[in-house]
């Protein structure tokens, strides 16, 4: 059986003055369907860069990446957009809701870029909002929601099209302890329900370590399995 994600010898470097500065070095990774992964590491170690490459927002400088059986190096920009829309969902640290749209419209935004039955997506959006506990806030504007509520909307949005790969960069990094705990619980439950593989980036190992299948650390651009991983 093919893996959802397969990275082989992947590296990324950026121009820094006259030299190339490596951000990711020789990363190998294989992720199965329906697993959850935590990536932790110090600031500036390349975690967001890795997520951007996994989400087809960035391209590696070297190495190969197969997503859902597709060699993404061969794809043009439109094909990458299509694959991204079909397979990947994002949750950002700072929510990134569209301020002019209502809660329901925000969750439905990805349907603008989806072919298929819009009414089915609408039903799903309402179900997802119910799962994250916002069934009575469909018409609210994001600015009238608390941080935790905004992130719950963002989670519903990310899961609307049942992505095989959910990428979350510090999903609770902007929330206080109790809210972070609540949002983490909802996120993990929703991911479980949809059946996505979740790649979570967080330095909060204590909170996420116990609830994921696998845990990697990224230090200085190198990805290694963390010591004492649960299970």
């Amino acid at each position: 059986m093919t893996a959802l994600v397969r990275l082989v010898g992947l590296s990324r470097s950026v121009p820094d003055g006259y030299v190339l500065r490596p951000i990711l070095r020789d990363v190998d990774l294989r992720l199965d369907y329906r697993t959850s992964v935590l990536i932790s590491g110090p600031s500036g170690s390349g975690k967001s860069t890795l997520l951007n490459i996994l989400g087809l927002l960035d391209r590696p400088s070297a190495g190969s990446y197969w997503l859902d059986g597709v060699d993404v190096a061969a794809l043009n920009d439109d094909e990458r957009s299509e694959l991204r829309g079909g397979v990947v969902g994002f949750v950002f640290q700072h929510f990134h809701l569209l301020p002019t749209l209502s809660v329901l419209e925000n969750v439905l935004m990805p349907s603008d870029y989806t072919v298929g039955r819009q009414s089915a997506l609408r039903d799903r959006a309402e179900d997802l909002l119910a799962i994250v506990g916002l069934a009575d806030r469909f018409e609210s504007k994001p600015m009238f929601l608390s941080g935790g509520e905004q992130q719950r909307v963002a989670i519903a949005r990310a899961l609307l099209r049942e992505p095989k790969l959910l990428l979350a960069d510090e999903p609770t990094g902007a929330l206080d302890g109790a809210t972070a705990e609540e949002v983490r619980g909802l996120l993990m439950a929703a991911v479980q329900e949809v059946g996505s593989t979740a790649v979570l980036v967080s330095h909060d190992v204590a909170r996420y370590g116990p609830v994921v299948d696998r845990h990697f650390t990224l230090v200085d651009g190198r990805l290694t399995p963390a010591e004492g991983v649960p299970r």
């Binding site: 439109d78 957009s81 991204r84 994002f90 990134h96 935004m109 603008d112 870029y113």
Partner: peptide
């Protein structure tokens, strides 16, 4: 700008 980034992240092509 950030709306453009968000829409692109959710599958919008440059032409969209």
């Amino acid at each position: 700008e950030s709306e453009v980034g968000i829409r692109r992240a959710f599958g919008a092509r440059a032409s969209d």
